[in-house]
Design a protein around this nucleic acid. Structure first.
Lengths: 333, 333
DNA sequence: TTGTATGCGTTATCAA
DNA sequence: TTGATAACGCATACAA
C-alpha cells in the first residue's frame, strides 16, 4: 500500500502538502494540487485511516452498541443510522452488548478505544450511574430507548409507558375487561414502563389487575408461548392478551391456536413494536408502532449536529407511539 | 486517557516493559508485572487500539460486509460471526454494501483502511474479477454465499441450485404440475442458481416451463405480492408457487389471500431461506433451510484458523440445503 | 529480565 | 503557498 510519503516523492512536494490536498483545507495552488492528485491516482493511494485517527484523534466513525445484531428491531435501527451517517461520509462501527452488564461495558470500551468520535447506545443492563459517569468523559453519546433524567439531553426514546397504556386502553375500548398481560423482563426499563402503562389503563377503567393473569416473559417468541400455557393453566377466563412486544405476541398466537383457541374470536391479542413480520402473521397483528426508523435517524442527527456539521436542527427526544389496528383484536361491545 | 508512558512512569519501569505486560508475551518477572498492573489499575489505563493497530499492523478485528444491516438473514449471520469472534477476543467491524457495486467496493476499502485483519464478505454487485484481484492483495477474506471457481478456497456457500431443485421437486412429488415461480433478481447469482434448480426439477419430470408463469421479483415482500398479481392476471391455472425466498413467499401468501385464494387448498406455496418469521406465517411456511448459523460460524472459523489460532480444523465450503415441511403445501396426488 | 531507540502513516505547528 | 519537524500511543528489534 502506498503511503503519503511515496506520493509526496512522486509529486515532488512535501508530506505536508500531500496531507493538505487530502483534507483539502489549507490553500494549495491548483498546479501542485493537480500534481499530487495525479500521483495519488498513479500509486492507487488510499489514506491509512488508522494513522489518520491516531494523528488527528478523530476517526470519522461513530460507534453503535445494540443488544443483538439480529432481530428486526435492531436491524432497522442500525440500518437507518448507518444510512444517515454514510450520507455525510461517516461510518458506523457496530458491536453487540447482549443485554449483559459486563458485555455492554466491554462494548462501550471497545468503541471508545477504537476512537469513535461519538457513541449511539442501546444499553439495557448497565446502570444509570455508569451512563452518568460516562458523560463526564469527553466522548459524546446518545442513549436510545433509555431515559435518564440526569442526562436527559443525551436520551432519545419512546414513551413506553404511553404505549403500554394505549394498547390496553384499546382493548378496554373494544369491550374487553378480562385482560391478561405478557410482560417483558421487568428489570428492563422499557418492559417495566410498558407494564406500568398497562396498569394505568386498567386503573382508569376501575379494574383491579389480577396478578395471576400476568406473566413475565423474555421478549422472545418462546416467552409468549409459555405465557399462554401458564395463563390457560390458571383456569381464569380472559378475552384478550396484551403482549409487551410483537415477538411474544406471535408466540402467544401460535400457542393459542394450538390449544384450539381462535384469534380474535376466542381471544384477542395485541403486540408492541410493529415489527416487519407483524404484517405476516395471521391474523395480522394489531400493535403499537415503535418508530424505530425515526428514532434511528434522530440519533444519527444528534451525532451529526453535535460533531460534524454546523447546522441548527431541533432534536426530538421523546417519541409518542401510535396504535396500529389490524385484525387480531375483536370488538366485543 | 492515560497512556502507556504514564503507566511506565508510575510503575518505575520502561515503556517496553509495560507493553510486554499488556501483551503478556515476553517473560516479565512477577514482581514488575504486579507493579505495572497496579499502575495500570490506578490510572484506569486502557490501551489505545488505534495506536496498537498502527504499530503492530494488526487490529484484532475482522471486517464484515453484508448487503443490509436489517433483515433477519443478515442479522443472524452477523450475530453468529460476532459471537464466534468474540470468544477469541476478536471484534467485528460491520458495514453495509446495499447490493450496489460502488457501495460494496467502498465498504471493502473502508474495512481494509480500518486495517481489519481479514474480511468476511457477503457481496452481490461486485464482479468476480474484482474478488479475484482482491485475493492478490495481502488481505485474507472469505466470501459468503458466492462461489467463484478461481478462488474456491475463499468461498463458503450454500448449494442454491440444489435448494431450488429440492423445493420444486417437493412440489412435483406432492402432485403439482402447474407450478409458478417467483424468482429473485436474476443478476444475483444466488437468485439465478435457485431458478436453475427449479428448471432442473421441472425437466426431470418432463415439464416444459411456461415463461408466463415466471415472475422476476426483488427478494422482498412486495415482490411476492406483485408476482401473484401478475401471475393471476395471466389467467393461466397453477396449483403451486415456488418462491425464491421467504419474504416473497410471505408477500405472495397475503396477496393470494386477498384475492380469495386459500392456502394451501387453492394454491400451495413454498419459500426459501427458512427465516425466523416463516414460523409465524399462517399457514406455517414450508421452505428450504438456509443454515445461516452454520455458515456464519464456518466463516468465522475460517478467519480464526487462518489468522489467529493455531489449530487444524476442516472447513466446510459447500452446504446442502434441506427441505422444511410445514403447512403451506398440499398433497394433491 | 529489562531498557533504548526506531518506526508505524498521518496531522499539525511552526517557519520560511 | 510550501516545507521541516514534532507529535499521536504503541510495538518491537536490538542491546544491555
Amino acid at each position: 500500500m502506498a503511503t503519503i510519503y511515496q506520493v509526496s516523492e512522486l509529486a515532488g512536494v512535501s508530506l505536508a502538502t500531500v496531507s493538505r490536498v487530502i483534507n483539502n483545507n489549507s490553500l494549495v495552488s491548483e498546479k501542485t494540487k493537480l500534481k499530487v492528485l495525479e500521483a495519488m491516482k498513479k500509486l492507487d493511494y488510499r489514506p491509512n485511516t488508522v494513522a489518520q485517527s491516531l494523528a488527528s484523534n478523530r476517526s470519522n466513525s461513530v460507534g453503535i452498541l445494540v443488544s443483538e445484531l439480529h432481530g428486526s428491531f435492531y436491524g432497522s435501527m442500525m440500518s437507518d443510522i448507518e444510512l444517515a451517517l454514510r450520507e455525510f461520509g461517516k461510518h458506523a462501527i457496530i458491536t453487540a452488548g447482549h443485554s449483559d452488564e459486563k458485555s455492554e461495558k466491554e462494548g462501550v470500551e471497545f468503541l471508545i478505544s477504537r476512537s469513535c468520535d461519538a457513541l449511539i447506545l442501546h444499553v439495557e443492563a448497565v446502570s444509570d450511574e455508569y451512563l452518568i459517569e460516562l458523560k463526564t468523559r469527553k466522548i459524546p453519546f446518545v442513549t436510545v430507548n433509555r431515559y435518564i433524567p440526569e442526562i436527559a439531553a443525551n436520551c432519545i426514546c419512546l414513551d413506553n409507558e404511553m404505549g403500554g397504556y394505549t394498547a390496553t386502553k384499546f382493548l378496554l375500548q373494544q369491550g374487553h375487561r378480562d385482560i391478561a398481560y405478557i410482560a417483558g423482563p421487568l428489570w428492563k426499563t422499557d418492559a417495566k414502563n410498558r407494564y406500568d402503562g398497562h396498569l394505568r389503563a386498567l386503573q382508569e377503567f376501575n379494574i383491579k389487575p389480577n396478578k395471576r393473569l400476568i406473566y413475565e416473559g423474555n421478549f422472545q417468541e418462546e416467552g409468549g408461548q409459555k405465557g399462554v400455557q401458564v395463563l390457560l393453566e390458571t383456569g381464569i377466563a380472559f378475552s384478550a392478551i396484551a403482549c409487551a412486544n410483537d415477538e411474544m405476541a406471535a408466540g402467544a398466537m401460535s400457542a393459542l391456536r394450538e390449544k384450539g383457541r381462535s384469534i380474535p374470536d376466542d381471544v384477542s391479542v395485541i403486540g408492541f413494536d410493529n415489527l416487519v413480520f407483524s404484517r405476516y402473521t395471521y391474523p395480522k397483528l394489531s400493535t403499537i408502532n415503535y418508530p424505530i426508523s425515526d428514532i434511528g435517524k434522530t440519533a444519527a442527527s444528534w451525532v451529526l449536529n453535535n460533531l460534524y456539521i454546523d447546522r441548527k436542527e431541533d432534536i426530538q427526544h421523546l417519541f409518542i407511539p401510535e396504535l396500529v389496528v389490524r385484525d387480531s383484536v375483536k370488538n366485543i361491545n
